[in-house]
Amino acid sequence: MPGSHKWDDERQPLLEEAVDAEMAVGSALLFIGSTYHGGGTNTSDSPRTGLTIGIDLGCLRQEENQYLSIPFDKVKAMPVEIQKLLGGGLRRELYGVD
């Protein structure tokens, strides 16, 4: 829905406002997350690939907390430089790194 990223929270899309995004093979469509969008029928013989990258603007980190995917005891055994690369410098109480 073109322009929908500028709408307030009360504005709802209307079906007639939708436009098709027909593109040549190898093209990409980029839009921000506040844009109303949909996926039309894939009429090709090939799968259509989608990629979502979510960033929380409050702290400019990814949406899922990958910093917690490694157990604390394993991270604490790593050199301080590695701990900082893994996010230890962001929250002192997580890894105890300044």
Rank of each mutant, 00 (worst) to 15 (best):
M1T: 13
M1Y: 11
M1C: 04
P2F: 12
P2H: 02
P2S: 07
P2K: 02
G3N: 09
G3Q: 03
S4M: 03
S4L: 00
H5V: 12
H5L: 02
W7F: 08
W7G: 00
D8I: 11
D8C: 08
D9R: 11
E10T: 06
R11C: 00
R11H: 02
R11E: 06
Q12L: 12
L15Q: 01
E16T: 07
E16V: 05
E16W: 07
E17Y: 03
E17K: 01
E17R: 05
V19Q: 04
A21T: 04
E22N: 02
M23H: 08
A24F: 09
A24H: 09
V25S: 05
V25W: 01
V25Q: 04
G26Y: 00
A28N: 04
A28L: 09
A28F: 06
A28Q: 13
A28H: 11
L29V: 04
L30Y: 15
L30K: 00
F31I: 08
F31T: 05
G33M: 15
G33W: 11
S34D: 06
S34A: 02
S34E: 07
S34N: 14
Y36R: 00
Y36G: 04
G38S: 05
G39N: 05
G39E: 05
G39M: 02
G39K: 10
G40W: 15
T41Y: 09
T41L: 03
N42L: 00
N42I: 09
T43L: 12
T43S: 12
S44Y: 14
S44G: 06
S44D: 14
D45V: 01
S46K: 15
S46G: 15
P47Y: 07
P47S: 04
R48K: 10
R48N: 04
T49G: 01
G50D: 05
G50C: 10
L51K: 01
L51C: 10
L51Q: 13
T52H: 14
I53G: 02
I55T: 01
D56W: 05
L57F: 15
G58V: 06
R61L: 06
R61K: 12
Q62R: 01
E63R: 09
E63D: 08
E63F: 11
E64N: 12
N65H: 02
N65K: 03
N65E: 05
Q66C: 04
Q66E: 12
Y67I: 14
L68D: 04
S69E: 03
S69L: 05
I70P: 02
I70R: 09
P71M: 08
P71T: 15
F72H: 09
F72E: 00
K74L: 15
V75H: 07
V75S: 11
K76E: 10
A77I: 09
A77Q: 14
M78G: 05
M78L: 14
M78C: 03
M78R: 12
P79W: 06
V80I: 13
E81F: 12
E81I: 13
I82S: 03
I82D: 08
I82W: 01
K84N: 05
K84T: 14
L86Y: 15
G87C: 08
G88I: 11
R91L: 07
R91A: 01
E93V: 15
E93I: 09
E93R: 01
L94N: 06
Y95P: 10
Y95F: 03
G96T: 14
G96M: 10
G96E: 14
V97Q: 09
D98I: 00
D98G: 08
